[in-house]
Design a protein around this nucleic acid. Structure first.
Lengths: 243, 243
DNA sequence: CGAGAACTTGATTCAACTCAACACTGGTGG
DNA sequence: CCACCAGTGTTGAGTTGAATCAAGTTCTCG
């Protein structure tokens, strides 16, 4: 399988991303050093490690997480196509969380050593990088708010709703369905809930005919009810840059 | 009281910040458009609003927070001298949280409209901005982990420890003491705990002779025990850029 | 001196956790 | 080919950490 040129990048045209100028595309083409395929289960980054390479996800999904002394785990977020991973590594000394592929993934590869080039020669692209960092921060603020202030049903509603909307902006949805290739344990660890309680809460959501998640497929049965539960403003459509 | 020139900025020399090149200082001097003093209680940013001005805190403290439909509040973080506030506003359309002064504050003022200049002409400064965004993201990841995975005693230990270390890097400490000018309610809202439980947990920390917080002053009685509780790696000293 | 904010403390309740089975699946090797 | 196993999901019973409710107390400030 050959490398995709940024000209033909299938992601660039999706709704979820800001448009590129043609010289930006040209630069990205030069900036990109290759592609990588990762099997499910691959560690793309290790918490605390430096990294020479950075990635943009072309396809597949994964999770970002931190591990604690006591063995518990916090899932920081789910990684979907278009996400840039390794920002921490590119700017700070080291990653502050690990990233693992949940499904097989295809990744654009960049060299960390060339990041500063971007700041020197490509103000628009450098701005895009900062933009991405800000979006990330925005997301984490929302997540913190949900984990800190909401009950189990709302937490789960929030994640499912958010994930579904993200999938939709990537054209991964169909009817009211999208892939959600994670374990209940992953969702539990993302929300600070126990596996058992997560399971029971998902069952409640199914009973109430709001959403149904099984076999890696999420089906939204009542989007309005879900939006209400999750407290997400339905019309904040965020486009983000792609790198 | 007259404006401080960046040349003489008292923050720049503190341990917590990365050094400046002299041309960077010169640029900041031009970039800075003025200073502002805010009384305690002032709203510096409103969630969802656009903002024409961005700030760096010269002195004083505040909180960042989000408000929910149901009236609850998540405190996203505490604002201390050297913090840049308004990054979201400068890069995204709008702030995604509010910022309020808890004590009187003195702020450096910048114009949002000139942020792009920074990307065009000052790669080092643009990089610093991205660096700040990444640090922020790092912090939020830690906070999420604490709120999601730890018990009340650990949560509170974590915040106190973290705050104390931050204060120390700003030379705000003395003996084992530093200012902590917030209400117990603020801490509770930061950690997703109830006020009552926060109060009882603080009492426990006092009983165990680990830390004592009253009248806006935090006194660390047993730093080692606190570090253990909070699970913070004691030797990860993060310098951050100042803007 | 009175009123409002912040802080304390005890009693009760409840949401979420843990423990403990059990069911279903796909993969492996005898 | 079937038996077994490991990983994941499901369900019920009992426990617990933190929330809520309800009174104080202390402090500040007009």
């Amino acid at each position: 399988m050959s490398t995709i040129s940024c000209d033909n990048c299938p992601l660039r045209r999706k709704d979820g991303f800001l448009p590129f100028k043609s010289e930006e595309v040209a630069f990205m083409n030069r900036f990109k050093t290759g592609e990588m395929v990762a099997d499910s289960g691959t560690q793309l980054f290790m918490e605390g490690a430096r990294a020479a390479q950075l990635f943009t996800v072309l396809s597949g999904m994964g999770i970002r997480y931190k591990t604690l002394e006591n063995g518990r785990r916090q899932v920081i977020g789910f990684v979907t196509p278009g996400d840039f991973i390794g920002l921490q590594a590119s700017v700070l000394d080291a990653m502050c969380h690990s990233v693992e592929a949940t499904t097989p993934m295809r990744l654009c590869v960049f060299n960390r050593s060339r990041v500063f080039e971007l700041f020197q020669n490509q103000p628009e692209r450098a701005f895009a990088l900062t933009h991405i960092a800000a979006v990330e921060e925005h997301f984490l603020g929302d997540a913190l708010t949900t984990v800190g202030q909401r009950g189990a049903l709302e937490k789960i509603g929030w994640s499912l709703h958010r994930f579904y909307r993200r999938a939709r902006s990537l054209d991964l949805h169909k009817d009211n369905t999208c892939p959600l290739p994670f374990r209940q344990q992953d969702l539990a660890d993302a929300l600070g809930l126990s596996l058992v309680h997560t399971n029971k809460t998902l069952a409640k959501l199914k009973d109430r005919k709001i959403a149904h998640w099984s076999n890696g497929i999420l089906r939204i049965l009542d989007e309005k009810a879900l939006a209400e539960l999750s407290g997400i403003d339905p019309d904040n459509i965020h486009q983000r840059p792609l790198i």
